[in-house]
Simulated assay, not measured.
Amino acid sequence: MSVQESTFHGFANPVDPSPAELRAWAYQPDSVPLASMPPDWDLLVSGDRLVLTLFELAMDPTCPARRFALHCLYIYAADGIRTNFRAHPKRRFRKLVEQAERDGDELMKIWAHNGRVLLARPDLFTYRDWCEGGLVRENRRLG
């Protein structure tokens, strides 16, 4: 039985979901609407513990919560770059970018491109674009 076939019944602790819970929710996001999550839930889940799960979800064009996962990857990238990689390991970020460039579709290639641009030009950071979903909604490449 796959994650998509199982029924998701909610998070044991929504502030600190497990990778399995996040994955199960992502394939049935209407089971627990985002509006019912704690404030700034996107910021809470965008850390090292869940980044590989978020990346996997963002890489899956069939995932119903793909845009949310991609949004979280933008937060993760910005958080790492803006803290000079004190918040997240630079090596992990680079590996994700390289994998997105190699195996991702256009959305993931744009995320990788934007991550590389921000890495080279941290002054291009705007909270709206990176943390409030602007780059996901507009699906644009930074210059």
Rank of each mutant, 00 (worst) to 15 (best):
G47M: 12
L50F: 15
L52D: 07
M37P: 07
R66W: 02
D42Y: 14
C63L: 06
V45S: 05
D42K: 12
L34E: 15
F55Q: 11
Y76R: 05
D48K: 05
T62P: 14
L44W: 13
S31D: 14
A58G: 00
P64H: 04
L57R: 05
V45M: 12
Y76C: 11
H71D: 12
I75D: 03
C63W: 00
W41M: 03
L57T: 01
L70P: 04
A58I: 00
A35I: 09
M59I: 04
S31V: 11
P64S: 06
P33N: 08
C72L: 08
L43K: 10
H71T: 08
F55W: 07
L44R: 11
V45Q: 01
L73H: 04
P38G: 02
T53V: 03
A77V: 10
R67Q: 13
D30G: 11
C72I: 07
T53K: 04
E56C: 14
A69I: 01
F55N: 02
T53A: 04
C63R: 01
A35D: 11
S31A: 15
M59K: 02
I75G: 05
S46G: 12
Y74T: 06
L50A: 09
C72R: 05
V51E: 15
D30L: 08
L44G: 09
R49Q: 07
D30T: 09
C72T: 12
I75P: 03
L44Y: 08
L57Y: 02
C63M: 08
T62D: 13
P33C: 12
M37T: 02
A58E: 00
P38Q: 03
Y76N: 15
T53C: 14
H71V: 13
S36Q: 15
A65R: 00
S31I: 15
A58S: 01
F55K: 03
D60V: 02
D42S: 15
F55Y: 08
M37G: 08
R49S: 06
P38E: 06
D40H: 11
P64C: 05
I75F: 06
D48E: 10
D60C: 01
L57Q: 05
A77R: 15
R49F: 15
A58R: 01
S36C: 10
L34S: 13
P33G: 05
D42P: 14
L54N: 00
V32S: 09
